[in-house]
């Protein structure tokens, strides 16, 4: 038992590179698998709306905009980024990207058309 047992580790870290980074000046690497904003492939969508049914927070809306043409609208504030819609989609029309910098001051910008 002695006080200040951590001393040598502390002194050594003085000469180590700090582990914290200058975010947002330095961007973080989230990795490819990270679940962020969704990506929508319009040509693949068949409008089955299974994603809407499975979404735990009602964040995604599929709308018919023309003959066999559908648009996807996502509420970034509601989306919990679980990726269930990606799993549910039978045609793989949805994909999760690793874009996580989605914070907005303006609420109206949270509803985006994918």
């Amino acid at each position: 038992m002695q006080p200040g047992k951590i001393l040598n580790v502390v002194l050594r870290s003085l000469f180590k590179k700090p582990v914290t980074s200058r975010y947002p000046a330095e961007k973080l690497d989230m990795g490819d698998k990270y679940r962020g904003k969704l990506k929508f492939y319009q040509e693949l969508c068949i409008g089955c709306k299974l994603c809407m049914r499975d979404c735990p927070s009602n964040a995604i809306t599929i709308k018919k905009i023309g003959e066999k043409q559908f648009s996807a609208e996502l509420d970034l504030g509601k989306c919990i980024y679980c990726g269930q819609c990606v799993d549910t989609c039978p045609k793989k029309a949805l994909e999760a990207t690793n874009n996580v910098e989605l914070a907005q001051l303006d609420y109206s910008k949270e509803r985006v058309v994918l």
Binding site: V10, S13, L14, P18
Partner: peptide, 11 residues
């Protein structure tokens, strides 16, 4: 700053 660097932070 020293406190931060000793803790391996940027400060």
């Amino acid at each position: 700053k020293l406190y931060a660097r000793l803790q391996n932070r940027m400060g």
